[in-house]
Design a protein around this nucleic acid. Structure first.
Lengths: 172, 172
DNA sequence: CGATATTTGATATAGTGGATAACAATTATC
DNA sequence: GATAATTGTTATCCACTATATCAAATATCG
């Protein structure tokens, strides 16, 4: 291909001889996504960003990220586990989990306790405050976040979506 | 709550007096996800990671990331657009799009040309090599990546999933 | 028992993606 | 023609992810 180093911008070139009536700030013409709209990964990513964004909004009064929420949930359901176990279950690398726990512990949401069985490991426990924050977070998530998704998709569709995502997450 | 600073690890404490038969490296007991498995965002994120991972594998011979692939696709479908328009459409911030384009341009997959209408902007074009790589990438994605998702979910389910994700991405 | 290997939490570090502020060149606005 | 807005760019920062390494503690095995 031999390409001249200048080109005409079709979005801004006056089509025919007529003058354009000052364009509305955004793109003059919407771009075509083409095969992108058939790419599952593309919609998956964009949907994920939106969902996380909404999660953050809904749970903003408690200052919890999705990842922090998932840790609190897991600690509540699995008392007596150590850092490696919790981190592995959530797909967090142990080194990265240290700072995350530091954050939660400094806010008195959970605590590390040295195990009597294995003095290398830290047993993780929710504090009372951690349990209280988790309870409030669960309510916010159910009442605002998940409820909104339910409104958008309908209950049956939401369940089907969840099942397929879980399928991909585990079997793909 | 008053908490002693040591605790017993239930996963490793011998239940009853019987000796444990040397545990299989991983967690002795699988952790309970609890409400996490009902959190749409959680499965969404994990599924997204898996799908991107597979995309990278399938298109590895061409050394293309999902983001780079989406740029090439968009350039092909929307000739004559500038950096701002392409970046905005993909949800990439203009400053971050510069380095990304540098990468693609240095591999001779696309080129920037100064517009004759507006000498501030760069019209983006696919090179012949860019078109060739895109064509091969499309084939790999269709034959390996999307086909595998189709096998896992079934064609109808895959379409339903895509529709719901697109719904969330646009209307949520 | 004791030497060696493994595990745990931790640190340092690097890479990547995403976000904002600021700038020069250019164009639009009034 | 003065001022504002836009484009591509740089610099910079933050969050998240990934790897290597370490000391302490424990497990393994001769």
């Amino acid at each position: 291909m031999t390409v001249s180093k200048t080109a005409v911008d079709p979005a801004k070139a006056p089509r025919s001889g007529r003058k354009e009536p000052a364009e509305p700030a955004a793109e003059s013409t919407i771009l075509q996504l083409g095969e992108l709209s058939e790419l599952l990964g593309y919609s998956l990513k964009r949907a994920q960003l939106k969902v996380f964004e909404d999660f953050l909004r809904c749970v903003a009064p408690l200052q919890l990220t999705p990842a922090q929420f998932s840790v609190l949930l897991l600690l509540d359901r699995n008392p007596g586990r150590n850092q490696t176990e919790i981190a592995n279950t959530l797909g967090i690398l142990r080194p990265n989990f240290v700072a995350m726990l530091d954050g939660l512990e400094s806010r008195d949401l959970c605590a590390r306790m040295r195990s009597t069985n294995d003095r290398r490991s830290h047993i993780l426990v929710l504090t009372d405050k951690g349990r209280a924050v988790l309870a409030r977070a669960k309510k916010l998530v159910a009442a605002k976040h998940e409820a909104r998704l339910n409104d958008l998709l309908g209950s049956a569709n939401r369940a089907a979506l969840l099942a397929m995502l879980a399928r991909i997450a585990s079997d793909f």
